[in-house]
Design a protein around this nucleic acid. Structure first.
Lengths: 315, 315
DNA sequence: TTGAAAGCGGTACCAT
DNA sequence: ATGGTACCGCTTTCAA
């Protein structure tokens, strides 16, 4: 038994012949080692916990896929849970993850008492969430906001509406700040509309309200692609010509956005890559827990599609 | 230790007083049992394997969510993997699932050698996949096909195009057969277009080809919502008036469909419910493996949105 | 009613 | 180079 273990793990001395016979036996019996027993003895498994708000929200599947693909390369497996931004669920999952000896976690939850994660003995990487003190992977939302505003201005909008996302979502605030910075320094008029969620239904109401209050706006910077979609809907319903009368820029570049008609111009977050980066960072942390806590920020980019006009000579 | 186990599992005799003190200690130490050790001893965990082709495909998240929510109620956790319809990945995942003592599996993979699942010692339920012999949960695709054709005819299309999905996807064939049945028995002209995948890019090509070959078609029954979206795009590009010149009906009712403009009429599969049903069926099988293998078929329904005309007096 | 002990399937140490 | 053995943390049986 000990010998089998040695050949399996390629550790210690094993005579070439016995090794062969063991390998043959393994083959014949179609044997594969019990990970649970391993995990029990070693006090760590090949399992990693993945927490996300809601897999049904189109922004998350790509992130999750990135995480999975990268971890799979190194034989890790994922246990996952939807938290619905509910701290109870979150704690609950974290607990069962630990009970199952996960050796690391990737969390995409937004608002959490640090305490929940503080006294964990395993490394955690936060995804799509800015944090100075904890390891995290996120896109440069502020720069994204700047780009959106610059593109909008450059492409000729003069009366811009800036939709400010939920205040408890840090990434939404970053985008907002970035856009605000550029808009403030520019010569255009602009109007800020505060919203409190990313849901499509809510967004539809705000969109109606927006055009009622500020009917001559000729450019909308939405807080994300779902909100942008709602704005686009309402604009189409009002028979505005897009992008002639009104330009719209979204945020995220969820798969849905390119399927709209007209296809949505947006600021892309490299979601898949964010997932793979989070996985890589986590694996580094697992190898070297002393590593000074490092975050990785990924660049965003403007995706020109059909809700913006052709630029008037790019910079 | 044995006593602790007894109070934890509420099994065997424990004096009321000791029980109290144990509970108190558990509370104080913030103790929670090691699931791995349990799993090793009992040879079964609280883990369930979930296999799906690609979480990035908008049809699957809702299914997965249904599965998770239902299983969570009974304290099961999910290990999941994307298979990309790749038999190697699939086998690989199944193996590691077993190594981790999962007590059941839910698989949404389409084409698989039964052999892969045949000699598994744990129950498996197939989701979104018709099977007479294995436990499975699926929507009534054939009826869906019939409904789509009936609605299309009833709402006045005379020259209908029926898009036939990939031949290796059973559910796609069911839909096709259903529509074909109704169309054949009707007085309308129709044209069948065979396609070999569900990808949007491919679908865009077919859509172009479709209108080139059969430009005066006034109704398209697409093989799913993604394909319908591509058709809609092309129609809009050709400046057809929807639904006046052309009606379109999709399949699935993925979240994206209601966000299109005009919103897509489609045949809804109750994805979330399919997920919960699969979970329920699996739990039944886990309790009673002798249960004669049972499948559950869920009804589909027509979702009237804006790519179909108002009915001319409903039946 | 409680605790001692064996065993789940591996790994790692130690003696041979 | 190999096998015996203790141990990982829990559950279950058995004896006290």
């Amino acid at each position: 038994m000990a010998t089998v273990s040695r050949v399996l793990n390629e550790t210690g001395y094993v005579h070439e012949d016995t090794k062969k016979s063991v390998t043959a036996a393994i083959e014949k019996l179609n044997y594969s080692p019990n990970e649970v027993a391993r995990s029990l003895y070693k006090r760590k498994s090949k399992l990693i916990g993945l927490l996300l708000p809601d897999i049904t929200n189109p922004f998350f599947p790509l992130l999750a896929r990135g995480v999975e693909d990268e971890l799979r390369l190194h034989d890790f497996r994922l246990i996952f849970g939807n938290t619905d931004e509910n701290p109870e669920k979150e704690k609950d999952y974290i607990q069962t993850f630990q009970q199952n000896n996960v050796i690391g976690m990737i969390s995409m939850t937004n608002q959490l008492s640090k305490t929940t994660y503080q006294d964990l003995s395993i490394p955690v990487v936060f995804l799509d969430r800015t944090s100075s003190s904890l390891p995290s992977v996120y896109a440069d939302g502020k720069e994204g906001g700047r780009i959106a505003a610059m593109e909008m201005i450059q492409r000729g909008s003069k009366r811009i509406t800036l939709i400010k996302g939920p205040s408890h979502i840090q990434t939404a605030q970053d985008r907002f700040q970035g856009s605000l910075e550029v808009l403030s320094a520019s010569e255009v008029d602009f109007y800020v509309m505060s919203t409190s969620s990313f849901s499509f239904e809510e967004a539809e109401k705000w969109a109606k309200e927006l055009f009622k209050k500020y009917g001559d706006t000729d450019g909308v910077i939405a807080s994300n692609d779902i909100v942008a979609t709602a704005v686009l809907h309402e604009a189409l319903r009002l028979e505005k010509s897009i992008p002639h009368d009104l330009q719209i820029i979204g945020f995220d570049d969820i798969p849905h956005s390119s399927l709209l008609f007209p296809p949505l111009s947006t600021i892309r977050q490299p979601a898949y890559e964010m997932g793979t980066e989070a996985a890589k960072l986590l694996m580094k942390l697992m190898k070297n827990n002393q590593m000074k806590e490092k975050s990785v920020q990924l660049p965003v980019m403007f995706i020109e599609r059909s809700t913006t006009r052709k630029g008037e000579g790019h910079v």
